[in-house]
């Protein structure tokens, strides 16, 4: 463990909190919130890889020598907007699931599905 990697450790910790929320919680909205946390932490990892401590934002200016790398910024800024578009898709599915089942809890949805399946079989 070297302390020069401190930011990466903290980013991994954030990612894992997001992942934990996705796995452990049964509420579909909470899962999406957890996915959001996880997603933003991945963005931080990418941005961190391109960052230079004494650097400047990659907008070229006279008298500035060191810039952070622009490529991760490009990848991530498009990913953020794609992320909200796909989150919106997830939210739309959540709304439809709620309208069909009257609940957002994964367990209750599975129980109801199983009950209906048994009903059809019998």
């Amino acid at each position: 463990m070297s302390w020069s990697h401190y930011a990466y450790y903290l980013i991994v910790a954030l990612m894992m909190i997001g992942l934990y929320t996705v796995i452990s919680h049964g509420n579909l909205l909470k899962k999406l919130i957890g996915l959001n946390l996880f997603q933003v932490s991945v963005f931080m990892l990418y941005i961190g890889l391109g960052a230079v401590e004494e650097g400047s934002a990659p907008i070229i200016k006279d008298g500035v020598e060191t810039y952070s790398h622009p490529l991760p910024h490009v990848l991530i800024l498009t990913a953020i907007v794609v992320g909200i578009a796909t989150t919106a898709l997830g939210l739309a599915l959540v709304v439809r699931i709620f309208e069909a089942y009257g609940t957002l809890e994964e367990d209750e949805v599975i129980t109801r599905d199983a009950a209906e399946h048994d009903g059809v079989a019998a």
Partner: peptide, 12 residues
């Protein structure tokens, strides 16, 4: 993100 020089990303 601003601190890490990613101003465009921070904006978004």
């Amino acid at each position: 993100f601003v601190l890490l020089d990613a101003v465009d990303v921070a904006f978004t």
